[in-house]
């Protein structure tokens, strides 16, 4: 079953084009990569899906439902969860507050929230020792794990992760990626935005490559991994023509 699908989505920032003609889908149990160079429009796609920007054209549907009139916060409550670029944890709140907050908007009882916290901490042992610390005191890698853990507090039906490897040490990147694989294996599909293609192809089944606001390549990760057009798209030479 298709969890998320975008058809002909276009986003503009005033007169400036963000993305156009984006068609994309994520099915259950998949990890799908959204690739592209800096400024290609990857984060814009996620913002549109989350409802932080309003598309000028096209349809975004989540589990068969058109999201056009669904406010951003409501999308999260329905399970459409984004771990934004740069982690965006709340540095001046404690780790525990960061986590609890992520389930607060759901109107669930305090006990249920605590239970969720307990099960998320169970799964992210790295977090447990730091619960009472201010989140801003964590290292970059720990913050990234916290950001993903925070996403899991919302019990997502789709987890979108924007550039989780940015600024992390290679070992840390590996463990963050392991987490994503594990999350997908447990039934939550993942839409992964990455600049680092080599890494992304390792854990994803399919990938889309954006260049200058358009999807220029789409297919199975294994096939794309050897496709010279991917490199071309990154270098900005002839990527669009190659389609």
């Amino acid at each position: 079953m298709t969890v998320l699908s975008l058809a002909n989505v276009a986003v503009y920032y005033g007169p400036v084009r963000g993305v156009v003609d984006v068609d994309l889908c994520v099915d259950e149990h998949e990890i799908v990569a959204l690739l592209g160079a800096n400024g290609a429009g990857k984060s814009t796609v996620l913002k549109a899906v989350s409802g932080l920007v309003r598309p000028r054209a096209g349809t975004i549907s989540f589990r068969g439902e058109d999201l056009k009139r669904v406010p951003a916060a409501t999308r999260v409550r329905r399970g459409l969860v984004q771990v934004p670029e740069g982690r965006r944890i709340f540095p001046a709140l404690t780790v525990r507050e960061n986590l609890e907050l992520a389930a607060f908007g759901f109107g669930i009882a305090r006990a249920a929230r605590r239970a969720r916290l307990e099960s998320v901490v169970e799964r992210f042992p790295l977090i447990r020792a730091h619960l009472q610390k201010l989140a801003g005191m964590l290292s970059g890698g720990e913050q990234q794990v916290l950001a993903i853990a925070r996403g899991m507090m919302a019990e997502p039906k789709l987890l979108m992760v924007d550039e989780p490897s940015l600024g992390l040490a290679p070992q840390m990147v590996e463990s963050v990626y392991d987490l994503l694989v594990q999350i997908a294996a447990e039934g939550t599909p993942v839409l992964l935005v990455e600049q680092n293609v080599t890494l992304a192809f390792e854990i994803t089944s399919r990938a889309y490559v954006l260049q200058q606001g358009r999807v220029v390549l789409a297919g199975h990760s294994a096939a794309l991994a050897d496709d010279p057009r991917v490199v071309a798209a990154y270098l900005g030479a002839g990527g669009a023509a190659a389609r």
Binding site: S50, G51, L52, A72, A73, T74, V76, R77, V81, Q82, P84, R88, I89, F90, P91, A92, L93, E97, E100, L101, A102, F104, G105, F106, R150, A154
Partner: peptide, 17 residues
Amino acid sequence: TAMRAVAQDRAAATLMG
């Protein structure tokens, strides 16, 4: 906590539902 979160980063708070 939600008020402080909105004060720190409104978009991130929205993404928390």
